[in-house]
């Protein structure tokens, strides 16, 4: 998706410093002070994780920190909200993955 560089009421966005970061081992560019969610969407990435159990794809839903749908791993810290976290130079972001639910399987096999 493209950025809204000019706006009839807000006006133009001034030149901002660029930083680069990684999402699932691919390098992307973001503007300084931009959230991970905004930077990824601007780069055309909507899918931020899959549901831990079913593997269904998920992206931002509320964009203001309420719903936790955009949680990703940032520099090793899991469950970080992409919509509230500002990108920093060299940041390593990883999408949420499907995980084996060992206990549930054990219960099912009983």
């Amino acid at each position: 998706m493209s950025r809204i560089l000019d706006h009839p009421v807000f006006g133009k966005i001034h030149e901002r410093e660029l930083v680069s970061f990684q999402f699932d081992e691919k390098t992307y560019q973001a503007y300084k002070d931009e959230t991970i969610a905004a930077a990824l969407l601007a780069n055309g990435v909507r899918k931020l994780r899959v549901h831990e159990e079913s593997g269904t794809p998920r992206g931002i839903y509320c964009n203001i920190g309420h719903c936790m749908e955009c949680r990703v791993t940032v520099n090793g810290q899991a469950n970080t909200r992409a919509c509230l976290t500002v990108v920093e130079q060299g940041m390593i972001v990883e999408s949420g993955k499907q995980l084996p639910n060992i206990i549930k399987r054990m219960v099912e096999q009983r």
Binding site: A37, L41, I60, N63, I64
Partner: peptide
């Protein structure tokens, strides 16, 4: 992904 609350679209 791509479904969002309307407020999310406003902020983005």
């Amino acid at each position: 992904p791509g479904v969002m609350s309307i407020g999310a679209a406003q902020v983005m």
